[in-house]
Design a binder for these strands. Sequence first.
RNA 1: GGCCCUAUAGCUCAGUUUGGUUAGAGCGCCAGCCUGUCACGCUGGAGGUCGACGGUUCGAGCCCGUUUCGGGUCGCCA
Length: 443
Amino acid sequence: MEEITGVVPTTSTPYSEFKNNLDKVVAIKGTIHNIRDMSDFAFILVRTARELIQCVYSPEFSDYRLNETVVEQAAAKVTGKVVKSETRDGSERYELQIHNIEILSSPAAIPPVVISKKQVTCELSVNLDNRPVTLRNPKERAIFKIQEGIQRGFREYLQSQNFTEIHSPKINFAGAEGGTNVFKLDYFGKTVYLAQSPQLYKQALVPVYERVFEIAPVFRAEHHDTSRHLNEYISMDFEMGFIDSFTDIMNMETGALKYIMNLLKMEYAPEVELLKVDIPEINTIPCVKFKDAKALCVKKLKNITDMKDFEPEEEAFLGKWAKQQFNSDFLFVTHYLSKKRPFYTMDDPEDPEVTLSFDLLFRGIEITSGGQRIHDYNEQVEKMKKMGMNPDEFETYLMLHKYGAPPHGGLGLGLERLTMHLLGFKNVRYATMFPRDINRVSP
RNA sequence: GGCCCUAUAGCUCAGUUUGGUUAGAGCGCCAGCCUGUCACGCUGGAGGUCGACGGUUCGAGCCCGUUUCGGGUCGCCA
């Protein structure tokens, strides 16, 4: 066995380590991604956790002789010397002169779709059917590395702001929020429901920890068959106490988004480059009141019928407007109508028709819903009655208010939707590793 | 769920004026060649119940009906 003289690159010390090992012998473990057989030599691209490393086989310096076991998708340990690549464009790159290849595992069949090219070219449903394989493609996996960066940024920023990370139960006895449909489940003979939001739990924890957040799946039994709906998705939620105004929540979100975008630029550069991600610049995010935004839409667009909410066309228009007017990819729309918001939303004391709530539009699509919550017990009970709900059914939830809650508020952010719009996809499923929708529960 | 579109090789798609012998291409796969590729290139080869069922016709990938799968769009929302 040849002596290893260099530092072995691992998933934590990847390709960038190469230049520190120039002319030294290292061993890398990875999957054979592509083989370009030239004449009496060959290029073998090895796929490691985050990049492709070019290895060169030639009888000149390889003790090993290529054989039929060296195939795409075989797991291998490749030993060799780190040298500078000959590149046509003169860019500085390094490669491995193969001394030896040890095959660690061999595939039983060739992949059903081509994953060794730059792009996976099959259609979405075929891609999803073959997810365990198609995700191996560098561009496909970069999507979910970016998604990891988004949730990591959300977590790190909130931790820096003294938020406590929580996990609320996903199996619940009460249907809780209502409005949208919940999945029913048999639970030892009782009917229980899958959580459609951590809302009630994160509010309950405000008097405990003051600031809490959760990144977790939520379940919606909606019969929507669209390019932006999932029946299970990752919700990034936070809730904070002792706020002076619901603008505190918007400021916190602005801070989190700034942090996330910066983190992507700094630590996810290979993926950002590979996917040509257009990372938005965020300074301050402009705000517009719902009724002003609606007036603008009515003025500029035809056939506006729903005066209580926005249609997709209106959101798209407001996105363009924010870009032109404020040079912002983001736009807060505030003071939504009381009747269109959930029962826990606080009404504006100056105008009870509207709420102290907001949505965040990103490039013309809604990604967040948030606002200030009712903290006074009697006020919450009254609002429930007004909305035709029975407060007795919400006894556990109302313990929050009954035994004292500070002024508070929070928001929920759909991780897949944010990923989708950041990467410019037309379908949320491209930004979902294993989507669960009305027709798909596998793989 | 409503409306519109589609289904041909493992994948992505052609299949023509008017239905007519053995249904084509690119990628992938297999074999051979190529001294630096980087979506390598070149030559050759294998690979098809034309989604399924029924109908019209001397004859259907093509026309008609039914059905299933897939895509788009709308209801709602993150």
